[in-house]
Design a protein around this nucleic acid. Sequence first.
RNA 1: GCCCGGAUGGCGGAAUUGGCAGACGCGGCGGACUCAAAAUCCGCUGGCCGCGAGGUCGUGUGGGUUCAAGUCCCACUCCGGGCACCA
Length: 958
Amino acid sequence: MSNAPTPETASHGADDTPPFRYTAALAQDIELRWQAFWDDDGTFETPNPAGPLADAEALAGRGDKLFVLDMFPYPSSSGLHVGHPLGYIGTDIYCRFQRMQGRNVLYSMGFDAFGLPAEQYAVRTGQHPAITTAEAVTNYRRQLHRLGLSHDKRRSIETTDPDYYKWTQWIFRTIFEAWYDDAAGKARHIDELIAEFDAGDRALPDGRAWSTLSDPEKEQVLAEYRLAYVSNAPVNWCPGLGTVVANEEVTADGRSDRGNFPVFKRNMRQWMMRITAYGDRLVDDLDLLDWTDAIKTMQRNWIGRSEGATVHFPSAAGPITVFTTRPDTLFGATFMVLAPEHPLVDELTTAEQAAAVAAYREEAAAKKEIDRTDDTKAKTGVATGGTATNPVTGEEIPVWIADYVLMGYGTGAIMAVPCGDQRDFDFARTYGLDIPAIQQPPAEWFTGHDIAPTDGADTSTWPIAYVGDAPYINSSNGDGLDLNGTSDVASGVATTNAWLEANGHGEATINFKLRDWLFSRQRYWGEPFPVVYDEHDVAHVVPESMLPVELPETDSFSPRTFDPDDADSDPESPLDRLTDWVDVTLDLGDGPKTYRRDTNVMPQWAGSCWYEMRYLDPTNDERFVDAAVEEYWMGPQTDERPDHPGGVDLYVGGVEHAVLHLLYARFWHKVLYDLGHVSSKEPYARLFNQGYILADAFKDEREIYVDASEVERRDDGYFHDGKPVTLEVGKMGKSKLNSVSPDEMYENYGADTLRLYEMAMGPLDQSRPWETRDVVGMYRFLQRLWRNAVDEDTGALAVSDDAPSDETSRVLHRTIDAVATEMDNLRFNTAIAKLIELNNHVTKIDAPPRAVVEAMTLMLAPLAPHIAEELWSKLGHEGSLSHEPFPVADPALLVDDTIELPVQVNGKVRGRVVVAADAPNDVIEAAALAEENVARTLDGAAPKKVIVVPGRMVNVVA
RNA sequence: GCCCGGAUGGCGGAAUUGGCAGACGCGGCGGACUCAAAAUCCGCUGGCCGCGAGGUCGUGUGGGUUCAAGUCCCACUCCGGGCACCA
């Protein structure tokens, strides 16, 4: 370990500022020196148990492992604003604190550098995305480094680096070569499936004999099983962007979320990922995760698992199939509603209704999805004139069409149970359809709605549908199905499902809202697929030895865009034009042959689906991560919890990734787990969502943002250039002209002040508004703390070797106790407040005792590491304090001999008494009643009751 | 429409299982230093009444439980986020 750096000279602030005052200039001097020291010293390099970064000796000196991860940034050309590093500062403090607790902490940072924004920026400026991305990454690295984050820089990655995306492609290859074995409940290698087909142990779904199939036919069959497959699925074609966008990238009104261009549905050959195979496990394993209930709920809702039944209603046009979560209510199904686009509508429609149906379908087709699904509008529909047979009652029920039923969801048809569903009830009342009761509502329900109780099927007086548990009535068909009298929905569902299955009318079904993941993009700036097609158009993944498939150089990286309204245009990827690259001769095991490369690239999510694992073993060129290294850092902590799934110990990031990123990463991780490549079942054991930094933004009368830094506050409002402007609070961002750069803060206050300010603003998980003028508070705190230890005129240490007073010791140890607890729980705002209190106490001491200053310096170190290192060095210590033990509170100093208790009379504080900490209740009571103001308030009246809460307070009930 | 959060001084926020509301910071006021200002330092700072001792009101609104409610329960208002007729 090298020696601590020495300051060159005293810094100089304003004319008569003492030369060794903690000014912004001195802070900068200190910060740059210590950042250089940490780099040279390798202070934050973390040893691995195996592989290139293994260091057995260093590892032996460390305690338990801790893997802390930030959601890595997408480097934009405009650089960081002070909102970006909020979470990074939090994780850095936590890591520094845990290092001082002896943990072996892995903490690094990478860059998610592929993606459409870089490509679009490059298109706008005419520069290659590789160049603009590299510049943005360099700027981000500088800004983050200047913040003093304790990253292990050897472990940093960029998703655009071929050495990184080689393994992204390898994982794609692995997923392509896998299938989901429902019986085993896990993914297996595709060769095992082929072996089963070859041996005749598994039949083809369509009954053909495997041995009679040609190779391309076999490949077609296998594509039905593979976890990555090409599908001729409907996609969202956006001619204005020249690319296909995912469902989740389309806004509610059917436009692209980037650029706001129209989006059209069209069919296209696309790579898909079979994430739906993991629907159950993605839901069930949420129970193993230390995430907030809010995020878990969002994932559950997105996956949308609902258990119910598929039911077939016979009709003249063939069976109409619906999915229902409430098959137990089939006896109340008195009509059906189909989407206007449903393929059976034509056949069901009678001659009399043909004109009305045609008109309605035309009307529905012209509506946007948002209008069709607008809940505030009245439901419309028309009868087809056709009927279907309710399979449990045998009754003919009318079939309607209505635009609120969407072809894209479920089967595009529903059964309507008007007595138990408000939407169906409204529809039935509007169009005069039958509403027989199938449950007997309780008496209170009738009185609650001011109507006379009815029984039997009559619902004519009901104002609304009855939704709730109640005994079934009219729910028996004399053919083996009888629910009458039962009031338990679960058993009603189970009984009905069994009957449907036994009689061939349907079966129990689990339905997911989750769809397979559209995994290809017609763009340039992404990972190329490691896929080639042969003369039969069969996809082959290239062997591992041919990875990475590098993104070819080109100057024409823009997607070809079209008239945004031209729905009939054909997508063309930038890679399509590079024929030298597309047409390739390879030997895939049966001699050199000509192939055509896949010209799609992967979506931005790909690189972020596994990046945490590359931090573990960034230079490994044999494997994406060494197995022993993965197990050390991410293996299940079964000693902590028997069902611990493994994964990152703490993952911090914004709630905007609650669904997509987290779900995709979990899916990839589970595939890798099933195939034995990782020991952890889940990538992120604990998730913490940080808040956002908000900032005032101002709009002028044209509704255009004005530069927030130029706005003047007056008593009568806000003004820009003398004109009134309106205030709008929101996320900080370049487009709102309210960004504050960290560079500005480094220059005016220093990184330590910025770190403290961001943490002191409020709890880490809460959004809070930025106020530049408040930053000075933390700057003053550091100045006072510095002055307590250092003579501002000479720069010499100004501590005494005296033992601290009893009072000071108690304050110190109470602070140690509180700060350690608060830091361990990520409550840095209150940890800072406790340190300020201690420092304010120390300020009152002439020459503060060394023991107090040393402990205070160590406690400050995670929060404001540079000034702490400098003080530690001035206190005569060699090297960095980063691995010094965090101070430990002496329990004896946490308890006082005497305590002051508030005394209430009827709940209002009337006085205070000082008693021995271990005083018995009757002594406390006597003291309380004797207190002057208490006695006066009681005015001689005898108290009815006295409540003594030991150590807390006394309440006298008069 | 449904679901999930949230609402505390002029501002950001603090407050174990219900137990002294307003820690800490900003701002404001007063003072020290200075020719003066800035910076820095010290003190005060929820509203109202009172010379004071003290009293009184007070955690979005209205009820309730309790010796005691920011905290628990019921109803409501507003703000933020998520979902979108999910069958």
